[in-house]
């Protein structure tokens, strides 16, 4: 295999292997919709994690409210269906765009803020949206949520749709980071004032980063509506289950790396599911009770010992592992 050079970015041979594997592995599980479902969730978290990573990991704007864009994308798909019977599938187009519009509007407020204030500001906006969508029943059907009977029972179509979205997300981030804009993003992350001083229109580039990031988050939301067939404000605007988990996916995999969030998504979904299902029922039942505890410990461990995440600290991990093997061998 050879690297493929495209106009905006290269697909390295490793990436080609990854793409092939993400096609082959799910096909191996042809008779297990349950596993296919897990793969779909992994891909959805790849989209969310990567979109967050562009804004936070590369541009330094650590959003604690990505649920706002995910949720608005889901409702962009669901509301026209509920009110006028328009197919939620249109959401794959409109969800992202709606999220970009919301992101731009919220950006007017939150981009005035820096560091922890930005984090808190984004968190607050997502929470406010959650409350509004729960209260305004005439518009959103409130906590009763929106239900849609999904189009297919078969999971493969869904998998390959979200797979394509995930690849598009990852490679759009890669392409951006190869471009001039990517360089500006990094300089904003390292020192916003310095970036401004050398003549970078920081406001503009923060908005570009935000737009791409929110577009994919909104698209993921729309996909969620189409695939799950049910949304309510507590689910799609969730602080912990969406916003925080999105960040943890990025952190575990590696902030500011192209493939980090993807790796983080795999780890997050598999670890949670392995423990929740007590290793597919092979381990004693009580293990399923501690799945959230294990995940919390994993987060602590990663932050403490692998600050760069699995991908960011990959060389370090390999080195340590070699040392460990060497020690064992010499004994």
């Amino acid at each position: 295999m050879k690297d493929i050079n495209l106009k905006f970015f290269t697909i390295t041979k490793y990436e080609q292997i990854i793409i092939l594997l993400t096609i082959i592995i799910p096909l191996l599980f042809y008779d297990s919709p349950y596993m296919q479902g897990l793969f779909i969730f992994i891909m959805m978290w790849v989209v969310l994690g990567s979109s967050w990573n562009l804004l936070a990991g590369y541009t330094g704007q650590v959003s604690f409210g990505h649920a706002a864009y995910f949720g608005i994308g889901a409702y962009a798909a669901g509301l026209p269906f509920m009110h006028w019977g328009i197919s939620p599938w249109w959401g794959l187009l409109t969800g992202g765009i709606t999220a970009v519009v919301l992101g731009y509007l919220l950006g007017i407020v939150v981009f005035k803020l820096r560091g922890p204030y930005f984090a808190l500001g984004t968190l607050a906006t997502a929470e406010i949206l959650r409350i509004i969508f729960g209260q305004e029943e005439w518009l959103t059907n409130g906590h009763n949520g929106i239900l849609y009977v999904t189009t297919w029972v078969d999971k493969y179509p869904y998998y390959f749709i979200i797979w394509a979205i995930a690849l598009a997300t990852v490679f759009s981030v890669k392409a951006l980071m190869k471009s001039k804009a990517g360089f500006y993003f990094l300089s904003i992350r390292e020192d916003e004032d310095a970036a401004k001083a050398i003549g970078i229109n920081t406001h503009k580039y923060k908005n570009i980063s935000m737009a791409v990031s929110t577009f994919w988050a909104g698209t993921a939301g729309a996909f969620y509506m189409i695939y799950m067939g049910f949304i309510d404000p507590e689910v799609v605007f969730a602080l912990h289950n969406i916003s925080i988990i999105t960040i943890l996916v990025g952190i575990i995999g590696g902030v500011g790396t192209i493939w980090g969030p993807a790796v983080g998504a795999i780890i997050m979904v598999l670890v949670q599911e392995l423990f929740r299902s007590a290793f597919f029922g092979l381990a004693p039942q009580w293990i399923s009770k501690v799945h959230a505890l294990v995940f919390g410990l994993l987060v602590i461990f990663v932050i403490l010992y692998m600050a760069g995440g699995v991908v960011g600290d990959w060389d370090l991990i390999v080195k340590k592992f070699r040392k460990f093997r060497l020690k064992k061998a010499t004994k």
Partner: peptide, 12 residues
């Protein structure tokens, strides 16, 4: 890369 590592630690 991010100064928010401590914040995320508190989440954990």
């Amino acid at each position: 890369i991010l100064p928010e590592n401590q914040v995320l630690m508190t989440v954990g």
